[in-house]
Amino acid sequence: MRIFRSRVGLKIFQVALCLALTGGGLLAAGSRVIGKPNFSGRINTEFIYHQLSEGLPTLQQPLPETESTTDLQLSLSGYTGACQYELQVTGYFHELLFETNQATVSSFFGPVLWEFGKKDWAWGKGLAFIPNYPLTQEAVYWGFENRIILSPFSLVAGVVRKNSQAGAGWLRAGKMFETSDWETIVSYVWRDERCYWQGGTEFSWDFLNGLCLHGGVNIEFPERTGKYLLGGVYTGGIFTYIMEYYYAKNHYLFAGLSREPGLFSRWQWGIKELFSLGDGGMITILNLKYLKDRTVTPEIIITTYGGGKGSETQKNPVEWECVMRLEVKF
């Protein structure tokens, strides 16, 4: 993986990407079938109120008491021949910033699917935390991934990079059973001038009585530091209960209670708590969303930061914040 640190390596990588694009284009031209592109968008407007901690000097306040943000997300996807393309961009008006969230091309041959481009490549079973994903969740990277399905087995190989300073490659082998599935992962990571291997396993299991468990363990070499996750989701008649314990340099507990709207309900609400078991810190998130209208969705999210004295969350300059969000789809 040191090739990505040198200019030669970078050139080789870029040539490989070009060849993949050209090959994909030839495949697409060969089948001469073009599908109608699918275009959609959404405008997200938020009004945010921060309740700042008392006693904080005005000049040291890192955030304004109120702020508003608007972003526009556009998505374009379609098929050309045996290839699918997906493009998603977001413009942040308040920051005059424009980002590409996804620009990928994918295709398949028999049981093999490949995907190339820029996107969030996150995978894993955890809800609040994924122990085996080697990079930052919700961050986008350039990369390439191959998936082979020979039911009940699967094999995934991928390599992604953000720049010469950050990237990873992984190999995942999985098997599906009657009510569970298991996966073994090996990955190589380079980040902040460190290179290391890590390996682990993940699983999910349905007990067929409303309870599903999931979890994973990851060990980094050569330091032999570990990350662990054990979680469960119980689906009752009306409510859904979630609990996850995970360890990554510190112990955390995540708990949630929600009422999912299903197909016909109008309201969706949830309560989430994140506890830092090490220092007693606590973050509480309440959300309420109204779903009746197909295009306009209002939502309110209240987040409080609290917990034991001396905890990291207590040092947060924001005591609580309220976000009123309006999403319009078109």
Partner: peptide
């Protein structure tokens, strides 16, 4: 979400 999540078959989705 970008990834599949296992859910219970009892989840009420369609009324």
């Amino acid at each position: 979400l970008n990834r599949p999540l296992r859910i219970s078959a009892q989840q009420k989705l369609f009324g």
